[in-house]
Simulated assay, not measured.
Amino acid sequence: MPERASARRSSRSFAAFDWLSVLVAVLQPDGSVQYANAALEQMLGVSRRTLVGSDFSQYFTDPSLIQSAVAGTHSHDFAAVRFEAVLRRLHQDGIPVHVNLGVGELREHLVVELWPLEQQVRQDREERLLEQSQAHKELIRNLAHEIKNPLGGIRGAAQLLELELQSPELAEYTDVIVHEADRLQTLVDRLLAPHRHPHEVGDVNIHEVCERVRSLVLVEHPLGLKVLRDYDTSIPEFRGDRAQLIQAVLNIVQNAAQALAPRMAQGDACITLRTRVARQVTFGRQRYKLALELHVIDNGPGVPDAILDRIFYPLVSGREGGSGLGLTLAQTFVQQHHGLVECESVPGRTDFRILLPLP
């Protein structure tokens, strides 16, 4: 009994590791597991109760690597060690995971940290996307203000000039100037839209958002398009700006619908709205116990490879005549909710995934 109570106290002292996205195991000197954090549980598909007391090396394709690292660190042959290894997932269809692994001492225990290489690449991509998004927002906002100021003067001067012209043919040129100035004004207003309106926070039901978007898109495209629902109705309400989220989802769905124009003509265009709950996920540099996943999946031609990495950049569009602002604004509105929009695309299947933290 005293040993069990001591183990419980020891486990509580490592509970902070559950907040980390990195996989962490705390080992006894003999290599058995004293504590495993939630991220490691999820990756292995094995409960903490099963992990505790087991030989940690059995979860690797080459157990001798971790055995040597543990023995060397414990005997002080080296203070810490890092190397690559392959982690076995006993209950995840046996698919191995390549990881960077580090072993170090923590009082009488050894701490093993594992960084899945795929996860590391994904986190690097997310951080790069966030940094680029912030830089682009500042650039666009500054440029928009610089463009907006002279536009009014150009438009006013063209209208005054039109009053002085006697020839109707020459007046056509001033009409062009006024029309193009108005078009630029509309573009600038769209660029500045996310920064003009205050964040109106209230309770949001994501399925009400989806249903609103679905009805709008089907009114716009009544023939040849199906919008399927695949909802997890257990998802709770959360705090957010309902109008912004409707606009974000609508922009993504409309983008999908426009890409599906050829398939609409054939009558087999399809968009699926899918909601799921994700547990213990990391995005936007934060770890969340629960998050909402909203997928917008279409069976269109896919995003061109040339722009796939830049699809959320301002003024980047794969469609002739597109403004290149719809997805940029969607990403901005979702980021204002501490979320992220990702895209995976191959011909025949494009999946935009919106991630939002849940309470």
Rank of each mutant, 00 (worst) to 15 (best):
L294K: 00
P150Q: 06
P168F: 11
G53V: 03
I66W: 10
V33L: 05
G348P: 11
I235C: 07
V176N: 11
L327Q: 03
V296R: 06
A71V: 11
E138L: 12
L273Y: 03
E344Q: 14
R239T: 06
S13D: 15
E344F: 10
L358W: 02
R155T: 12
S11N: 08
V341A: 05
G153Q: 08
M1F: 04
S133K: 02
G45D: 07
E84T: 06
E344N: 12
V341F: 08
A265I: 07
V281Q: 01
G326P: 04
H207S: 14
P194F: 10
V281Y: 00
Q120G: 02
Q42F: 03
Q185D: 14
R89G: 10
Y288R: 00
A261L: 11
Y313M: 13
G302L: 07
Q244R: 15
R82D: 06
P347S: 13
A257Q: 08
E162V: 00
R353I: 13
L51E: 14
S75L: 11
G156E: 14
V253R: 00
V111Q: 10
R125V: 02
V46N: 02
V303S: 09
L143N: 14
A71Q: 15
A69Q: 05
V70P: 08
D55K: 07
R183I: 09
L151A: 01
Y59S: 07
Q120R: 06
A7L: 14
Y35I: 06
V111M: 12
D351W: 01
E126Y: 03
N100R: 12
S323C: 05
D18T: 00
D182R: 13
R229F: 10
V99F: 05
T61C: 03
Q280Y: 07
A69S: 12
A85Q: 04
P96S: 10
P194Y: 06
P359H: 13
G326W: 07
H195E: 15
A71R: 13
P198V: 05
T275Y: 06
A171G: 13
E113R: 02
Q119C: 00
S6D: 15
E169F: 14
T350N: 03
L170D: 15
S234M: 01
L355K: 00
P198R: 12
L187M: 09
Y231F: 15
L110A: 13
D93A: 12
T61Y: 08
R239Y: 05
L273W: 03
L163E: 13
L139Q: 11
L163K: 03
T233R: 08
I154W: 03
H179R: 15
V219D: 04
R190P: 01
F17W: 09
L250R: 05
H197M: 13
V253D: 12
P168V: 15
V97D: 02
V103S: 08
R242K: 09
T282N: 01
V296K: 09
L216R: 04
R49L: 03
R319E: 14
K137F: 10
H91N: 09
L315S: 09
